[in-house]
């Protein structure tokens, strides 16, 4: 019941979402993330072939493509979550800010604090709303005092657009929130660690259209301070939230460019077929 009541007032504000401003492809800033010849294998099976991609800072880059095309695999390479899969092997190099994240001296834990991740299904910890957000700052020792921690938590919830909805029940379990609220809680949790980059793996696939619109709006706001890479199955979503789009197909990066160009004048025939719904 309460879910419905909470989300109703949001409808008029969020539905007419501004079209994302398109980045001028001519102005090429130095990329924040540079992937060169990335090959990924699961055992014998090759999941990604020679992916080279540059991701500019403070923009939203969408990774699109049919299921099993490798877009999530590529996303998980960027904060080395693939390390957790025993049979997974990554070749090539991915540089963030000029540093190779696959260099042997890289501390994965520090890397992941810089490159946050929001998952497909909202996965709040079975703890209170406050504890969910405080978790990251606590383990990284970001707050010197209780008051400071409180500030970080509130600021993160505010940035994730959730504070107004939960400020009076910070001790309620995170799992008691609605799906969309849970996902925003997970975004707040990610922001609390002050990452530079936020990876989002189909963050709206488990959400209804209203909650989705809310998250998309949030992504657009976050772009100011964070570099965002989002994997999405929805081409409308890619078109709405991203400035750049990369199209993956069968483990290859088929085409990459400004979102407007990909959706209006794709160079590759496979991209054309996918965005018009003929493959995928």
């Amino acid at each position: 019941m309460s879910k419905i009541v909470e989300s109703l007032p949001n409808i008029p504000e969020v539905l007419p979402l501004d079209p994302a401003p398109q980045a001028d492809p001519a102005v090429r800033v130095k990329p924040l993330i540079t992937a060169r010849n990335v090959n990924v294998f699961y055992g014998q099976k090759q999941a990604l072939q020679n992916i080279s991609l540059e991701v500019p800072a403070n923009q939203v880059t969408a990774l699109i493509g049919p299921s099993g095309c490798g877009k999530t695999t590529f996303l998980r390479c960027i904060n080395r979550m693939n390390d957790l899969i025993d049979i997974c092997r990554v070749e090539g190099s991915i540089e963030i800010g000029g540093q190779d994240i696959y260099h042997k001296d890289v501390d994965v834990v520090t890397l992941r604090a810089q490159v946050g991740m929001v998952f497909q299904k909202p996965n709040p910890f079975p703890k209170s709303i406050f504890e969910n957000v405080a978790y990251g700052p606590r383990i990284h020792g970001l707050a010197a005092s209780k008051a400071e921690l409180q500030d970080i938590v509130e600021a993160s919830l505010e940035k994730a657009g959730l504070l107004a909805e939960v400020h009076d029940r910070m001790n309620a379990p995170g799992t008691s929130l609605s799906g969309g609220q849970q996902q925003r809680l997970c975004i707040a949790r990610t922001i609390a660690v002050e990452p530079k980059i936020i990876l989002m793996d189909e963050p709206c696939s488990a959400l209804d259209p209203i909650a989705t619109a809310r998250i998309e709006e949030l992504i657009d706001e976050l772009r100011e301070n964070y570099t965002i890479i989002i994997v999405t199955h929805s081409m409308q979503q890619a078109a709405r939230v991203s400035q750049r789009t990369a199209f993956f197909h069968m483990g290859e990066l088929v085409e990459e460019g400004a979102t407007e160009q990909i959706f209006t004048a794709p160079r590759d025939e496979r991209t054309q077929s996918y965005i018009t719904g003929r493959i995928g």
Binding site: T110, A113, G116, M117, F119, F125, I139, C186, V193
Partner: peptide
Amino acid sequence: PQALRDASLGLGA
């Protein structure tokens, strides 16, 4: 659930 481990590891724990 593995999702909880992923969430924690993804935060740099």
